[in-house]
Computed example of a mutant assay.
Amino acid sequence: MAVTVLFLGPLRDLAGVESREFSAPLDWEGLISSVAPEVAEQLRQARVNVACAGKVLADKASLNAQEGDEVALLPPVSGG
């Protein structure tokens, strides 16, 4: 099994896909090195959040996704 990474909003446009599977376990450095450079650049910004297994991580560098986990990459939301 693997970890499913969901690319949401503008990150989906940069990645060119809605989701992608990566080998488990997946940590922050593994994620950064596995995605396109344009996506990695966005992920490093403080305004982008990461959720793992349905919980937004307070520190995205603490990512430790295991087999079957879903990781959502959450771009900032705008609106009024």
Rank of each mutant, 00 (worst) to 15 (best):
Q66H: 13
G9Y: 05
E41V: 13
A40F: 05
V50C: 01
V39M: 02
L8K: 05
P37Y: 04
D13F: 10
S62G: 09
V39I: 06
E29Q: 15
L14V: 09
I32M: 08
A40D: 02
V35R: 03
V50G: 02
A51W: 02
G16Y: 04
E18Q: 14
C52I: 04
A2Y: 02
A51D: 04
A2K: 03
A58G: 11
S34Q: 07
A65E: 12
E41T: 15
L31E: 00
F22A: 08
L63Y: 00
E21P: 08
A51V: 08
A46Q: 15
F7K: 00
I32T: 04
A51G: 05
G80W: 09
S33C: 13
S34K: 00
A24M: 11
V56W: 03
I32N: 07
L14E: 00
N64W: 09
V17A: 10
I32G: 01
L8D: 05
V50A: 12
L11K: 01
L14T: 05
V71R: 06
L14S: 01
A24R: 02
G54C: 07
S19W: 12
E38Y: 10
A65Y: 12
C52Y: 09
E67V: 15
S78I: 00
P37H: 08
A65Q: 10
P37L: 06
M1C: 15
Q66E: 15
L31G: 05
S33A: 14
W28H: 07
A15G: 03
N49H: 06
G16E: 10
A51K: 11
D69V: 01
G80C: 14
L6H: 13
V77H: 09
V5E: 04
A15E: 00
V48W: 02
V71F: 04
M1G: 14
I32K: 04
F22Q: 04
V5P: 01
A51F: 02
S19C: 11
E29N: 12
N64K: 07
E41A: 15
L8I: 12
P10D: 14
V56Y: 00
D59F: 08
G68Y: 00
L73T: 08
A46G: 13
A61V: 11
